[in-house]
């Protein structure tokens, strides 16, 4: 039970080919255990977001392999990857992408409705509970483009949690939050890891946030220099 590997990066290389080829990730290899809360730090432009996109199966153009729950993501069909993202991964973008055509509540509910395990009203109750945890439930009927940056960020986190994914990946989830809300998010993450055995992989620039997590992976120029 303890120390089951849930996420594994196997020698990941990633290059962008524009006018000239730029290698952004270089032989990235690490594992994350179930229930671990891992922070990823590094200078701006060192490749953190790029890595997270690959690990979350949203980018399939790379070398190496990603294993989620010991299953390889290589060679999976687009539809299967979509299913993995829906069921097993919660993702919070650096620039909190929400659907402006939908209300806050609907934004949080949509991945749950897509998964189709719970009934609509159950998804709704769960979504409301999540919004309450982040203290944004009064905004549930507002449209996404009517929120402040910090509010959007919390909605995006709530959306990532709706299907109780086994892995939650966040790209600077507290970047736009004040101290108090940042702490709320941190506490929730810690609880998810320790009580629910959910795994967290969080990119952050907040040193204190990183220090308080279980483990830190530091990246520099596309390589892991410390973990």
């Amino acid at each position: 039970m303890v120390n089951t590997i849930i996420l594994e990066a196997k020698h990941i290389n990633k290059s962008f080919h524009n006018h000239l080829t730029v290698r952004v990730l270089n032989d990235i290899a690490f594992t994350v255990n179930k229930g671990e809360f891992v922070s990823v730090i590094g200078k701006s432009g060192c490749g953190k977001s790029t890595l997270l996109y690959i690990l979350s199966t949203m980018d399939t153009d790379y070398e190496g392999d990603v294993l989620i729950e010991q299953e390889t993501m290589r060679g999976k069909k687009e539809k299967q990857l979509a299913r993995v993202r829906n069921e097993k991964i919660g993702f919070v973008f650096q620039f909190h992408y929400l659907l402006n055509e939908f209300t806050v509540l609907e934004n949080v509910m949509l991945p749950g409705l897509k998964l189709g395990v719970l009934k609509e009203d159950e998804v709704k109750i769960k979504a409301m509970d999540l919004l309450k945890e982040f203290d944004i439930h009064p905004l549930s009927d507002k449209y996404a483009n009517q929120l402040s940056g910090g509010e959007k960020q919390r909605v995006a986190i709530a959306r990532a949690l709706i299907n109780s994914p086994s892995i939650i990946m966040c790209d600077e989830p507290t970047g736009n939050l004040d101290k108090k809300n940042g702490l709320i998010v941190f506490d929730i993450f810690k609880r998810l890891a320790e009580e629910n055995q959910q795994t967290l992989l969080v990119v952050t620039h907040d040193e204190e946030f990183a220090k308080n997590s279980h483990r830190i992976i530091e990246i520099e120029d596309g390589r892991i220099i410390k973990q």
């Binding site: 979350s56 897509k114 959306r159």
Partner: peptide, 10 residues
């Protein structure tokens, strides 16, 4: 893009 990121397929 958002729909796809959150698990909707092509």
């Amino acid at each position: 893009a958002i729909l796809k990121a959150t698990g909707f397929s092509g």
